[in-house]
């Protein structure tokens, strides 16, 4: 595996007292099914991007949920939004919508407004 110059797996303590959990609440507002994830990893296993990289949706989702945003925007850029993960989710979580919303929040991408 290529070293991509950053790592999201460095060991550290997640201090929930100091973590920003509001971003995740915004995702849950848009995608209520996000709460249903039971972290089985089926999404990661079937991921199209996973064939090329170490992208791990379940992990990114969980780190986002815990308010650990470091490096996540770059990770999310690896996702091709193909939606395959949504099809294998037992819990019916709209995984693609979660990624979409995390991406919007992290990269602060907004709609173009009409002139």
């Amino acid at each position: 595996m290529k070293d991509l110059g950053f790592s999201i797996s460095q060991s550290r303590t997640i201090d929930l007292d100091k973590s920003d959990l509001s971003a995740y609440r915004r995702v849950v507002e848009k995608v209520p099914s996000a709460k249903l994830c039971l972290m089985c990893g089926a999404c990661t296993a079937t991921c199209t991007a996973r064939n090329h990289t170490d992208f791990n949706f379940r992990k990114v989702h969980l780190l986002f949920r815990r308010g650990q945003f470091e490096g996540l925007a770059e990770e999310l850029d690896k996702c091709m939004l193909c939606g395959k993960c949504r099809l294998v989710c037992n819990r019916g979580v709209n995984t693609r919508a979660i990624i979409y919303n995390m991406r919007i929040i992290l990269e602060n991408l907004n709609y173009k407004s009409i002139k």
Partner: peptide, 24 residues
């Protein structure tokens, strides 16, 4: 981890894919 895809191998065995969620 939940197996989410199964594919045949050249020698007629099965390749299963999952995420080993505990090792991430």
């Amino acid at each position: 981890g939940r197996i989410s895809e199964v594919a045949p191998t050249f020698d007629n065995r099965l390749q299963v894919k999952c995420e080993d969620t505990l090792s991430q």
